[in-house]
C-alpha cells in the first residue's frame, strides 16, 4: 500500500488567498486535479511541506472567447475541452492532443494547468500549444504576465514559474481553414512517450500560406518549435522533411532505458514525416 508523506492541506478559494499562502510556504505542491501529483506523493518522489488545492478558484475555471482570442483556465478538465472549445483549427489541434491523454478516467480528473505546468516531456498539451504559438498567462501578486509557451519551459520538469506565481491559463488565437496533425509514439502505456509531433498548416492552391510544427517527447526534452517560414510550396515536402531530419540529427538524444538514441531519432523521423504528409499532402 502506497501512502503519501505527511503534509498540510490548504484549500484556496481566491487568487489573493493563494498568493498569500504560496508566498508563506517554502515549497508547496499545487494541485488542481491531482492525478500526477498524487502519484508523485505516493511514490515519495516529492515531500512537500504543504499541498495547496487551487481547484475552487473561480478565475482558473473560466473559458473566455473574445473575437479570435481564446483563454482556457488552468483548472479546465481535459475531457471538457472537446465540448467547450470553439470550432477553429487551433482548438481542433488542442482537442486532438488532449484526447490522447491517458483514458477518460484520467482526463476527467486531469486539468489543463497540470498538463502544462508539470514540464514532463511526455505531456501532450505543451506540444500542441507550442505549434499554435499559445501564451502562458501567469498570475502573481502584483499583476499578470503573458509569456510565449516556447519560453515557459527551462528544461524537463522545470518551468519559469517562481515562488508565489500561478498559471492562470493559456491563451491563443483562433486559426481557421487549417489542416492539423498530432502524432506520438509511446513505449509503455502511461509511461514515457518517445516522440510527440504537432503540425498545423494552411494551404491555398498548392501554396503554403502558414505552416507551424512542434515536437517534444522523451527524446527531445522541452518542446521545440520549428521555423518553417522559408517554405511556400507544397511540392517542397521532400525538402521540408530533409531539413527537419537534419535538425533532429543535430539535437542531443540520449541512450537510456527508453531506447537507443538511434531508435528515438528514427521514431522522430517517422512522426515528422507522417505529420507533414497529413497536413501538406492532398
Amino acid at each position: 500500500m502506497k501512502v503519501p508523506p505527511d503534509f498540510k492541506y490548504l484549500r484556496t478559494y481566491t487568487l489573493d488567498e493563494y498568493y498569500e499562502k504560496a508566498n508563506q510556504l517554502s515549497l508547496p505542491l499545487i494541485i488542481s486535479g491531482g492525478t500526477v501529483a498524487v502519484l508523485m506523493l505516493k511514490n515519495r518522489i516529492i515531500r512537500p511541506e504543504a499541498v495547496i488545492d487551487i481547484s475552487q478558484i473561480p478565475e482558473l475555471n473560466m473559458l473566455k472567447i473574445d473575437k479570435d482570442d481564446v483563454f482556457i483556465g488552468a483548472n479546465t478538465k481535459l475531457y471538457k475541452l472537446k465540448n467547450v472549445l470553439p470550432n477553429d483549427s487551433a482548438s481542433e489541434l488542442i482537442v486532438k492532443s488532449a484526447s490522447t491523454i491517458g483514458d477518460i478516467a484520467i482526463r476527467s480528473m486531469g486539468s489543463v494547468g497540470g498538463n502544462v505546468c508539470l514540464g514532463d516531456p511526455s505531456n501532450d498539451l505543451p506540444v500542441a500549444l507550442t505549434a499554435i504559438d499559445a501564451q502562458a498567462v501567469i498570475g502573481k501578486k502584483d499583476g499578470i504576465t503573458y509569456t510565449p509557451i516556447t519560453s515557459f519551459y527551462i528544461k524537463p520538469f522545470k518551468t519559469i514559474l517562481n515562488k508565489g506565481e500561478i498559471l492562470l491559463g493559456v491563451n491563443y488565437k483562433m486559426l481557421n481553414g487549417y489542416r492539423t496533425s498530432y502524432k506520438k509514439h509511446f513505449i509503455n502505456f502511461l509511461d514515457h512517450y518517445v516522440g510527440i509531433v504537432a503540425a498545423i498548416a494552411k494551404i491555398e492552391e498548392n501554396t503554403i500560406k502558414d505552416f507551424r510544427m512542434a515536437m517534444a517527447g522523451e527524446a527531445v526534452g522541452k518542446p521545440v518549435k520549428f521555423d518553417l517560414s522559408e517554405f511556400s510550396k507544397v511540392d517542397e515536402i521532400k525538402t521540408i522533411k530533409e531539413r527537419l531530419f537534419d535538425y533532429v540529427n543535430t539535437i542531443h538524444v540520449e541512450n537510456n532505458r527508453f531506447g537507443t538514441a538511434n531508435y528515438k531519432k528514427k521514431v522522430l523521423y517517422t512522426l515528422i514525416s507522417r505529420a507533414i504528409d497529413e497536413v501538406l499532402k492532398f
Binding site: 499541498v51 481547484s55 478516467a105 476527467s108
Partner: peptide
Amino acid sequence: LLDGMPVKSCLMLAVQ
C-alpha cells in the same frame, strides 16, 4: 463516479 464522471480513486486525495 465523481459527480457523474469516472475517476481513479487511488489517484485522488479523499479531501479533494
